[in-house]
Structure formats: C-alpha cells, structure tokens
C-alpha cells in the first residue's frame, strides 16, 4: 500500500468530523435537520457546539423555509437530510430560485447502492434529477475521501453564487442498512 493511500485512510473514515469542521470553517450558524443514520455523528457534533443552532424539523421543506429566513437575517445555514427528504422539499425550493438564496444541502443517499428496503429506491433514484429540475446544482461523493472536498465545493457554490446546491453522499460511503438480514 503506498504512502498516500495509508495517510488518507484515517481522514477518510472521519468524514463526519471533517464535515463538522467544514461547517465551522464556513461559519454555518443554523443547521436544519431531519435525522438520518448517515448524519448521526455530524448532528451530535453540531448539537454539542454552542455556536450552532440545530433546528430539528418535522419535514424537510421546513428546512428550506428556515434557510430562507436565516439568510434574510444574515445567518448562513445548511440542511442535512436523507434522499427521501429531497422529495418533501420540491415546491419550497422555489424560494431559493425566486429570491436567489444560498441554500446548501448535504444529502445522505438511500436506495442507491446495495439497498435492502424497496421503498427507498424510487426517491433515491429520483433524488438528483428532482434537485436539478428545481434548479439546484448537484455533486456526488461516492468515496469517503471525496465527501469533504465535495461538500466544500457545493457550500462555496451556494454562498458565492446565490443558489441551492447539494452534495449527495453515496450509499457506498455510508453502507446499506440490512435490518439484520445480511
């Protein structure tokens, strides 16, 4: 194993901590969340940070509206959700286009790579197309070492160019939930 691969391993496995550090670097203040197992560690880090306001939502579209209000008041925010939640955001995303609002999303994918649950596949298959149809700029990360650089790029694109953006974290990175049937 060459030196570069060995060095990249710990950092790659720590991508949730890397995402937390990234949110701090970008001075993200409001973190809108509908939980996903893939985001659990990042959510714990954010909850432990007094400089961040974690807003737990009943449905993901609330998070889009929250980010609209946050930006009006000068706060930078991010929305964490799983791919099924993207479907709940569709019409509310028109706020970002209408008002040219930075709205970075970090989406953990289901129904994407080795999925067990049939109900996750329809929305998982549609996630990127739905986001792009609503005008969001989407980039995927399918290797652990790509997660933080990709999220960094999409957060920059959101705040530098005033639009909704998303990083999709592939199920290959997170692992497929098997309900004890593996």
């Amino acid at each position: 194993m060459d030196r570069q691969v060995m060095e990249s391993r710990p950092a790659a496995a720590d991508w949730p901590d890397g995402l937390y550090e990234l949110l701090k670097t970008h001075r993200i203040r409001q973190v809108a969340v509908v939980p996903d197992a893939g985001h659990a560690r990042l959510i714990r880090r954010c909850l432990a940070d007094n400089g961040m306001r974690v807003v737990s939502l009943t449905t993901e579209e609330e998070g889009i509206a929250l980010l609209q209000g946050a930006w009006l008041g000068g706060d930078k925010g991010v929305l964490l959700m799983q791919s099924s939640g993207v479907g709940n955001c569709v019409n509310m995303l028109s706020l970002a286009i209408t008002h040219r609002t930075p709205m970075p999303m970090i989406v953990t994918m289901r129904g994407d790579f080795g999925e067990f649950n049939p109900a996750q596949v329809p929305m998982g298959s549609a996630t990127q197309a739905v986001l792009e149809a609503m005008g969001a700029l989407v980039r995927r990360a399918d290797r652990p070492e790509d997660v933080v650089p990709t999220a960094d790029a999409t957060i920059r694109l959101a705040f530098n160019t005033f639009r909704p953006t998303a990083t999709l974290i592939g199920q290959r990175v997170i692992g497929a939930k098997t309900f004890g049937k593996d």
């Binding site: 209000g69 009006l72 706060d75 509310m92």
Partner: peptide, 22 residues
Amino acid sequence: NFPLWGGMGGAAMIGLGLALAQ
C-alpha cells in the same frame, strides 16, 4: 416587509430562521 409570492406553508418557518438570526 418580506411579502411572499410562493412557498406556501413556509411563512412561519421563514419567520423562525429570521428570528433566530436576529
């Protein structure tokens, strides 16, 4: 004033984001 033309169902949450920011 921030009058909405769309985003039906989101007004209260926009208020929340703004209130937390300010």
